[in-house]
Amino acid sequence: MISSPLQLCLVFSSLLFCIGLAGALSRSNSILVLLGIELMLNAANLNFIAFWRFGPAPSPATGVIFVTFSVAVAAAEAAVGLALVIAVYRRQRNIRLQEAVRLKG
């Protein structure tokens, strides 16, 4: 069924992505949701490296540079997200995501 290493890597990254997605959807703690999102980002990065390594010959460093940037952005996003969590915690004294619904229309 899995005919090449590339396929294996793709399956791997898909599974990681869905684990992250399921985790983000099911947990009510904001920090855990953020962790799920980090997992999803990681899965995407995995995909990039898989195709860089096993795919047709691309330019030598594009995949790597892209993933570097992605990691940097993910870090920034994690920082901002966690700052938000702290801010939300300050207002509602817990970090249950279901309670942060003030933008309800």
């Binding site: 069924m1 899995i2 005919s3 090449s4 290493p5 590339l6 396929q7 793709l10 399956v11 898909s14 992505f17 869905c18 860089w52 390594r53 096993f54 795919g55 047709p56 010959a57 691309p58 030598p60 460093a61």
Partner: peptide, 19 residues
């Protein structure tokens, strides 16, 4: 995603990855 990953014909991999 698995459908996409498994059902598409992927190009052959090179032996050594790019440096």
């Amino acid at each position: 995603l698995l459908y996409g990953a498994l059902m598409t014909t992927l190009p052959a991999a090179s032996a050594h990855g790019p440096a």
